[in-house]
Amino acid sequence: MDVWISIIISICAASTPLLIAATGELVVERSGVLNLGVEGMMVMGAVAAFSVAQLTGNPYLGAIAAIFVGALFSMLFAFLTLTLVANQVATGLALTILGLGLSGMIGEGFVGQPGIRMENIHIPVLTDLPVVGKLIFGQDLIFYISIALVFGVGWFLFKTHAGLMLRSVGDSHSSAHALGIKVIQIRYLAILFGGACAGLAGAHLSLVYVPQWVEGMTAGRGWIALALVVFASWRPGRVLIGAYLFGAVTIGQFHVQAIGVAIPAQFLTSLPYLATIVVLVLIARNRRLTMINTPASLGQPFVPDR
């Protein structure tokens, strides 16, 4: 039993960064913007979190720094795509390339240093409950934030007026503009939120999942988060399911490697990426599901007329 609990906890740890980054990107895409820079913002968050935690000795300050850095970094993308109407795909790629380079430079001095892990919370009595205690009451703070985030975003998007405005901007920016909704302003805020989430996701990697700084440590997780948004057909609840499925695949391949099955490690390492492709194909085949939920203005530039 304990073995299973520890496996489930490790699945939670592998899924949390995917979940946070994907939830952030979901909000961005719901507002009609495709930000392919998740990987770059995430890796910047990871290096910011690690370096601030090292310098101050406090991982929570690290996580806060990551949120700020992710948000700040996303504003580069926002300025180019919203104010200068640059191509969103290309600008997102630029953000990823710049993020990977910049984080490598900032983190150079931290390579190989033992990190400070964000401690799991401990609530007397509750955490010590048998079986479920550690799973439900004994994980790191970011895990709880990630769960709250999904439900919070779901509530915001579908139950509040502001959420409705955001979705209307994503579905038809011209109509929204005609109704007097500030399209550009809402998109700036959505991108800011997505950046903050990607930053926090990176913080989870370098403070909880690995507790170290390794160059390019996001290893494609930002891209998997993007795929998860498509997989979830832009619904927060499905992001939760998707992120945990991927977490399970990742942890599963580690365990298969550990048992020593005669499959080359490289094939097992490719599994999450191959799984992403398979999932994308399966989802795309279901045209109706994607057609209904895809924000209609996704990726399209918007220049307000007066």
């Binding site: 200068l84 191509n87 600008t91 630029a94 710049l98 993020g99 380079g101 910049l102 490598g104 150079e108």
Partner: peptide, 18 residues
């Protein structure tokens, strides 16, 4: 650091797009 090259390249793409 040789990472500075990547930073230059990333910045270049940004400025090109802008």
């Amino acid at each position: 650091s040789d990472r500075a090259t990547r930073v230059f390249q990333g910045l270049l793409l940004f400025f090109v797009l802008a």
